[in-house]
């Protein structure tokens, strides 16, 4: 062994000049750190905003196509002062949350039921699969006839929209429970409830979270369309109204608000996911 080490060519064992390496590496390392930090995900949106403002100010972007971000901010301020924006925001958020809670909890319950019970699956799954294939926005005319333009119309559509992603993913998560772990649990004398609570449900969580994130996206999409078509309040209504009066800044503001709300919902889901799936190797790497 030692013989081979001695006969190694000199360059292989020559130490690197001290001092030189850190000097070269430092700026690279900090840039890398910046790009990996949480703030980095906002770099591109911020740049887009800057380009947008610059082109608007230079007159490259006609104001009847897209108003400058500063004008949108001014519109936001104006509507906040009059109270129009907070009220509409609250109305939309309320519809989203109520619809999501109703649809989501029903979907979760049926997903669990049909996941563990073959009878439940036989009785309801076919029906769900048929309804699932109807685009839920195709129901809009019917829903307007049923509920008029009251809140319940939007809540119904949101609940219907979020139901399927959560139902399917919960069902799938429960059905694909690790048979080896279930057998282990049984051989250690777990009751059915313990088996469900300690083995089946935790195993289904990653799948359930996928459903949750899909559902949050569908929740906003459904709400926007429903509010734009027929409503008497809400962000979508605000945008439709603004269109009538050619208030382009308010229309753009509404769109931006939807983007921010969507991001907020997704971040919440990601946070929950990271908290609940701490054990998962995929979530242990993230600092």
């Amino acid at each position: 062994m030692s013989d081979t080490q001695i006969t190694l060519p000199r360059p292989f064992v020559r130490p690197v000049q001290p001092g030189a390496a850190p000097h070269l590496r430092r700026p690279k390392a900090t840039l890398r750190q910046l790009l990996l930090s949480d703030a980095a995900s906002w770099i591109v949106p911020a740049l887009l905003l800057l380009v947008w403002q610059a082109t608007a100010q230079l007159g490259l972007l006609p104001t009847n196509v897209l108003p400058a971000p500063s004008e949108v901010v001014a519109a936001a301020w104006r509507l906040t002062v009059t109270g129009e924006l907070p009220v509409n925001l609250l109305v939309s958020a309320k519809r989203a949350v109520i619809g999501f809670l109703i649809g989501g909890s029903l979907a979760f319950a049926f997903g669990l039921l049909n996941g563990v019970s073959r009878i439940g699956e036989k009785l309801t799954d076919t029906t769900f699969q048929m309804i699932r294939n109807i685009p839920n926005l195709a129901m809009v005319p019917l829903v307007i006839l049923w509920f008029g333009i009251e809140d319940s119309a939007r809540v119904f559509l949101v609940a219907l929209g979020v139901f399927f992603p959560i139902y399917i993913n919960t069902y799938h998560g429960i059905r694909t429970a690790d048979a080896q772990l279930v057998e282990m649990g049984r051989s250690y004398g777990m009751s059915n409830w313990e088996l469900f609570r300690q083995v089946i449900l935790p195993g289904a969580l990653p799948s359930i979270f996928v459903g949750l994130r899909y559902a949050l996206g569908i929740m906003w999409l459904t709400l926007i369309v429903a509010e734009t078509i027929a409503a008497n309040a809400g962000i979508g209504y605000m945008a439709t109204n603004a269109r009538e009066f050619m208030q382009l800044d308010v229309v753009v503001l509404a769109i931006l608000i939807y983007a921010l709300l969507g991001k907020l919902a997704d971040s919440t889901a990601r946070f929950l996911e990271r908290t609940a799936l701490k054990w998962h190797p995929a979530f242990q790497a993230t600092p």
Partner: peptide, 26 residues
């Protein structure tokens, strides 16, 4: 009676000590 399987069959979502506690039975 207890069976030790060919695979560890640990619950990935339970800490090591909680996995051992599964074996405590009643």
């Amino acid at each position: 009676g207890r069976l030790m399987f060919q695979e560890p069959r640990l619950l990935p979502w339970a800490r090591v000590v909680d996995n051992v506690a599964v074996g405590l039975g009643d």
